[in-house]
Nucleic acid binder design. Structure first.
Ligand SMILES: NC(=O)c1ccc[n+]([C@@H]2O[C@H](COP(=O)([O-])OP(=O)(O)OC[C@H]3O[C@@H](n4cnc5c(N)ncnc54)[C@H](O)[C@@H]3O)[C@@H](O)[C@H]2O)c1
Ligand SMILES: NC(=O)c1ccc[n+]([C@@H]2O[C@H](COP(=O)([O-])OP(=O)(O)OC[C@H]3O[C@@H](n4cnc5c(N)ncnc54)[C@H](O)[C@@H]3O)[C@@H](O)[C@H]2O)c1
Lengths: 228, 228
DNA sequence: CGAAGTTTGTGATTGCGCTCACAAGCTTTA
DNA sequence: TAAAGCTTGTGAGCGCAATCACAAACTTCG
């Protein structure tokens, strides 16, 4: 089992377990944690927790649970969080600024180490000690700072072009906030965060339940009418 | 087929098709579009596009493709975007401000119609014409403004409490930006956007390919050594 | 009109992920 | 030491989603 490739769905949950484990470690000084407890904290099924963790190896003890510190270390290592991941943000507008001054990234070894834009107005401005540089300097900055992650926060029209510049500079991981599809070579990972899509999914389900409620209401009225 | 419930995976892709269709409609004045073209724009497989659209009904014409305007209308209707969805943002810090002044939401009928916080310092301040109100006023605002979506942008510790207040006020759809698990009754939908998790997934895959590259390199060196 | 060319709609197949259920293996207790 | 009690690790079964492949239905062309 432990030499099998880790399923994507599992990879996506490891960060959640990591967060739960940190909470356990910092909070009550418990040394071990059961899959049941972890499951409750992560909001998933206990069997899923066990199967997920079993892909990393047999790090639990039957009858006891998982050693918190040890499991923390193993997940951290598996996710590649024992090393530092310098990241660059491209497009320093509303969203880019919020991201640039967000403290939460550094907690897991992600360090924003360069900011880029093309607007003359903002070039040179400092945010959290970092100057906004021109996108033309991207390639040299990637090499100098060892940047491994590119965060795109430009308008959608510019996203593909910026992605290509990132790829050209050697960046293999991209997080895209612009609502547009970006195409990259197969050796590059792109993940997108699209708020508008999330809202549309919510409205789909809400509309659906509203429609059902309305239909029920109509039925009820018809029933009453028939009785009268 | 068209009376079957729409699979979740399909719902998540409809907004992407919608965006692609809008691009087709506005750009070149093409009246129809093929599944192949849509697939290319959405970055997915053509068969998937056809199957997805078939859940909405048979809106295409064989040998021709899909009528752009008609399909636009059908997807819009299915996603519930023919009506307005007033939303509230709770937690007006770095991220909340970026969201509050984002123009992109209104394009699809999402309207930010109230802002909430608990910090005395920011209460009363105006952002984009909206005042920041105290969280205690949430319930009355939800009723008055007909708010149907709650966007949580508070620190993680406050997220569960805020979610409960939203639920209590009657909100059935929640978008959570705080890195924490929130539990809600089964009739409420929660979607989460967690940037830190996205970065960790990226680092997992990047570390993995780096590890492979390093292993190859080591092998190569051993091979050279053996030859010498 | 008939044949060739397009493109949809969908049955069939395959693969992936979730859940269940339980043996294996540990701790505690007497 | 033996029995009872927990909790892990994982095989088996099931359902959802992706892909394939092709008949059906349309358009175009000769
Ligand atoms: N602000 C939000 O809350 C929010 C929410 C959801 C999605 N988004 C998306 O995030 C992206 C950024 O949003 P925003 O509100 O910060 O927009 P913004 O207009 O405030 O900022 C965009 C920035 O990108 C810069 N830019 C433009 N073209 C560029 C290029 N080719 N290279 C580098 N920089 C370039 C601009 O100069 C500007 O500073 C958009 O795609 C938007 O749709 C934003
Ligand atoms: N800023 C980012 O780019 C970013 C990125 C990823 C995730 N996040 C997450 O988004 C959330 C907000 O981030 P931020 O950077 O805007 O933080 P922030 O500290 O700038 O803002 C948080 C705001 O929430 C308010 N608040 C606190 N408790 C509250 C309560 N109980 N009810 C209502 N409001 C309350 C605070 O007064 C403050 O105004 C955090 O959970 C953060 O982890 C932010």
């Amino acid at each position: 089992m432990r030499n099998r490739p880790i399923p994507e769905a599992t990879v996506a949950r490891l960060p959640i377990y990591l967060r739960a484990l940190l909470e356990v470690a910092e909070g009550r000084g418990e040394l071990t944690v059961s899959s049941e407890e972890l499951a409750a904290m992560a909001g998933v099924n206990a069997a899923k927790v066990r199967k997920d963790l079993s892909y990393l190896g047999s790090y639990g003890t039957r009858g006891v649970g998982y050693d918190v510190e040890y499991l923390l270390y193993q997940i951290t290592r598996e996710l590649g969080l024992t090393q530092d991941w310098p990241a660059a943000i491209i497009g320093i507008g509303n969203l880019g600024r919020a991201l640039a001054s967000y403290k939460g990234f550094s907690e897991r070894g992600f360090r924003i180490s360069a900011l880029f834009d093309v607007d003359e107005e903002v070039l040179g401005e400092q945010i959290g000690g970092l100057p906004i540089r021109h996108l033309d300097e991207l390639k040299e900055a990637v090499v100098e700072e060892g940047i491994s992650i590119g965060i795109i926060a430009t308008p959608p029209m510019a996203a593909q072009e910026v992605a290509e510049k990132l790829v050209d500079a050697g960046v293999k991981s991209i997080l895209n906030f612009a609502p547009s599809v970006v195409n990259v070579p197969p050796d590059v990972s792109v993940r997108k965060v699209d708020l508008s899509i999330e809202l549309q999914i919510l409205s789909f389900y809400q509309q659906r339940t509203q429609a059902i409620a309305t239909a029920r209401e109509a039925n009820r009225r018809l029933a009453v009418q028939r009785k009268v």
